[in-house]
């Protein structure tokens, strides 16, 4: 199958949400979300806490069924988890004291595609090492996950996701609490995956990160406030609507887009 390049005009969306709503008991988390995500694009979901960023990612990952509306993957309705969609959860959800090595934790990325009665093969291990090499963690493959820093933990999650090798990569707050080298590595990785035709969707509350590391920004606050290129979306008025009047926009001289001061959010 030929995956359309990022700049083709006649490309088809990989992931589509139509009139999507999610309610938790009486509370509405997402309202009327309709959007297309194209292969080879890096899309950031930007919004304050409680804006529904994680919820939207989980709906795309097939972990939360939408209360209304539908999600389609390459034109086929999505119900439940799909092997083409890889999800990288927030690091805080995992038990980092669990007695498991970096390599073993990475190998779990293959568990869906391997029969349960067979141990992981030598080839599986080589593949995992390769994924760890990509995130510059191969030298720590025998280390315990409990000994890792925040950035290293994020890299293990990325290696695990790379191993699963989906066409859509969903990441929940990948830039939060990680060191600068890991942030730079994430940016490089997103670029490479985009070039290979993967759709990368990540949640963030960091305006600057979203402005510098995405082809498209979706501003979310329960519903879609605005979407478009970083330059189109990052206007003071739109940001004020999303974040609730706590935004001071500082125009940086070296970029075309107004880059808000994240520290003021």
């Amino acid at each position: 199958m030929v995956i359309p390049g990022p700049h083709q005009q006649d490309r088809k969306p990989l992931l589509t949400a139509r009139e999507l709503s999610v309610h938790y008991e009486e509370r509405s988390a997402l309202r009327d979300i309709t959007l297309d995500i194209y292969p080879g694009r890096t899309v950031s979901l930007l919004g304050p806490n409680g804006a529904g960023k994680s919820t939207l990612l989980k709906v795309f990952a097939g972990m939360i069924p939408p209360s209304h509306g539908s999600v389609e993957l390459a034109g086929t309705p999505l119900s439940g988890a799909h092997e083409s969609v890889t999800y990288v959860p927030q690091r805080t959800g995992a038990d980092w004291t669990f007695p498991i090595s970096v390599l073993e934790a990475t190998l779990l990325g293959l568990s869906r595609s391997r029969p349960r009665w067979r141990p992981f093969s030598r080839r599986d291990r080589d593949q995992a090492i390769q994924a760890l090499q990509e995130v510059k963690m191969d030298h720590l493959s025998a280390a315990q996950i409990g000994a890792l820093s925040g950035g290293q933990q994020q890299r293990v999650f990325l290696a695990r996701a790379l191993l699963a090798c989906g066409r859509v990569l969903l990441l929940d707050e990948p830039f939060t609490g990680v060191d600068i080298p890991t942030q730079e590595m994430l940016v490089e990785l997103f670029e490479r995956l985009s070039n290979e035709g993967t759709a990368v969707v990540y949640a963030t509350h960091d305006l600057q990160q979203a402005a510098s590391t995405s082809d498209e920004v979706i501003l979310l606050n329960g519903q879609i406030v605005a979407r478009g290129s970083p330059a189109e979306v990052m206007s003071e008025k739109i940001l004020r609507t999303t974040f609730g009047g706590q935004v001071i926009v500082v125009h940086a001289s070296n970029t075309s887009a107004p880059v808000p001061d994240e520290a003021l959010i």
Partner: peptide
């Protein structure tokens, strides 16, 4: 063993894995 390990280590990822 693999499933029980996964749900003990990282429940969110396990769920996203189906």
């Amino acid at each position: 063993r693999r499933e029980l390990t996964m749900i003990s280590f990282d429940r969110t990822f396990s769920k996203s894995n189906g």
